[in-house]
């Protein structure tokens, strides 16, 4: 068992240096993967992999078969031309922190780790920070200083205002001229009251992005408190975005609340699936390493 497995989000958050944190996460994630996760049909040989049903026969290394009497598939380093846009929701609700780090922290960490990894792969990485407005934009680049620029912007993020994902996606659709990976990190609050008509607008936007050969992945980041409502005793809840107040006995309301939040999550899960959008529900208490590993081993591999 590797030592990275014991790095929980709290421990990671204590690593003040975001770059260090990103590197730690990526190394931790990669440690659980094969050494070279990016495979394609590039001309530069990378490694052998034992044959398993479903692999293309044309990549079988017959010489290796002669030596070891086993089938091995030849794998090659791919030449990357990927641009990635990280859309980070910095609305006030992202500032909520239960027992773990805040959702914004979680988004920041995941973004840093993935950006670190992609830049290492010579991919271009850009950043869009939004609430109801676009707060920051870093065009995708692959040069060496991009990581530091991105990390610097991430470190200065503040959770304020409301969220407007549609505006951010519209902006990205306008600036992303080539095939790109668009990664959204948000709690998706603010659009939770969207009716079917509004969702249709967002869906149309996602379909447009897909039509432009973009890949879209959504990390919905929620705190455990928001999923379980663990409080007890009558409390006066103050909404973080609207500022309204509500007197609630959580014990009385918990069951109904969970039904509501589950319905909310399920509806987005279903809608994104219908829109061919990669969807990941991330609890802020989840290990970023696991989150990054899952993403690297799954969606990102398919995209590449």
């Amino acid at each position: 068992m590797r030592s990275f497995e014991f790095l929980d989000p709290t421990a990671l958050s204590k690593l003040g240096n975001l770059e260090l944190r990103a590197r730690t996460i990526v190394e931790g994630a990669l440690a659980g993967l094969h050494r070279s996760p990016h495979h394609g049909s590039s001309v530069e040989f990378a490694e052998h992999k034992e044959y398993s049903p479903g692999d293309e026969i044309k990549f079988i290394d017959w010489k290796a078969y002669g030596k070891f009497d086993k089938y091995y598939i030849k794998r090659f380093e791919e030449e990357t031309e990927l641009s990635a846009y990280f859309l980070i929701d910095s609305s006030a609700s992202m500032g909520y922190a239960g027992k773990a780090a805040s959702k914004l922290d979680c988004a920041r960490t995941i973004t840093a780790a993935l950006a670190y990894f992609l830049l290492k792969q010579q991919d271009q990485v850009g950043l869009v920070v939004f609430d109801e407005k676009l707060r920051a934009y870093l065009p995708p680049r692959a040069r060496g200083g991009q990581l530091h620029e991105l990390l610097r912007k991430l470190e200065t993020l503040q959770a304020i205002g409301r969220s407007d994902l549609e505006r951010a996606l519209t902006y990205v659709s306008e600036v992303a001229k080539r095939r790109s990976l668009i990664v959204v990190l948000s709690d998706l609050f603010g659009s939770e009251q969207a009716d079917e008509k509004e969702w249709q607008g967002l869906r149309h936007l996602l379909l447009s992005l897909r039509a432009m050969k973009h890949d879209v992945a959504v990390f919905q980041i929620l705190d455990d408190d928001e999923l379980t409502l663990p409080f007890s005793g009558t409390s006066l809840f103050e909404a973080m975005e609207e500022g309204s107040e509500l007197l609630v006995d959580p014990d009385e309301t918990r069951r109904a609340y969970r039904r509501e939040i589950d319905r909310f999550v399920a509806s987005y899960q279903q809608r994104f699936a219908e829109g061919d959008v990669e969807y990941h529900l991330v609890r802020s208490s989840d290990s970023p390493i696991d989150v990054v590993r899952d993403f690297l081993s799954g969606p990102l591999r398919r995209i590449r």
Binding site: A92, S93, M94, G95, Y96, K103, D187, F189, E192, Q193, D223, D225, E226, L229, F237, E238, A239, M240, E241, E242, S244, L246, V248, T253, Y257, E260, I261, F264
Partner: peptide
Amino acid sequence: RFAAVVFL
């Protein structure tokens, strides 16, 4: 302070 007040 709570983010999911609307669900509450």
